[in-house]
Amino acid sequence: MRVRDFICQIWFRLALLTPILLFTYACRCGTPTPITGIPASTKTIQSSILNSTEPLTLVHAWATWCGPCREEFPELIKIHNEYASQGLAIILVSADNPDDFSIVETFLLEQSSPVSSFIATELNQAFIETLSLNWSGALPSSFFFGSNGKLLIEWEGKKSYAQYAETIEILLKEITGDTP
């Protein structure tokens, strides 16, 4: 067991350098992934969407200094707690300064977030269009992707738990309901 713990510790340190590995850490090590802010390039964020193993992936763009984002965050946690076991993956993408990743980490811990958050290192047009060609760039914004990485639904602005839940239930029902 000690060897396994040691390997997992090393894995986590390496994963911080190559963020995509963080998403496999918990599965392989069988322990909760330490919640943190993870600076990530647009390519890394795109890869995490494409590599999501769940039928529905919610990518949520936010920031700690954004009032509506802070107000909405507890709703997202409730959404995760309700739907993570039903086929929903949540990928958080913060627009905070990656040099101040501890601010993101502190906020996530204060909120008892069950998931870590990427911190986008490139807030340019390529980043915006990786999530959606229609996105104006305003925060907060949410994007629902199917398992093939296809964008299904998106919106800008704060939403309630009920609005998230309604969307997720319709999409999950249609996606998984037609699976042979």
Binding site: L152, I153, E166, L171, E174, D178
Partner: peptide, 21 residues
């Protein structure tokens, strides 16, 4: 084909409920 069609319907329903432009 059926899956694409029903998913499109679902998306339309959700969009009508949630997206404002």
């Amino acid at each position: 084909m059926k899956k694409k069609y029903t998913l499109r319907l679902a998306i339309s329903a959700v969009a009508a409920l949630t997206i404002t432009s």
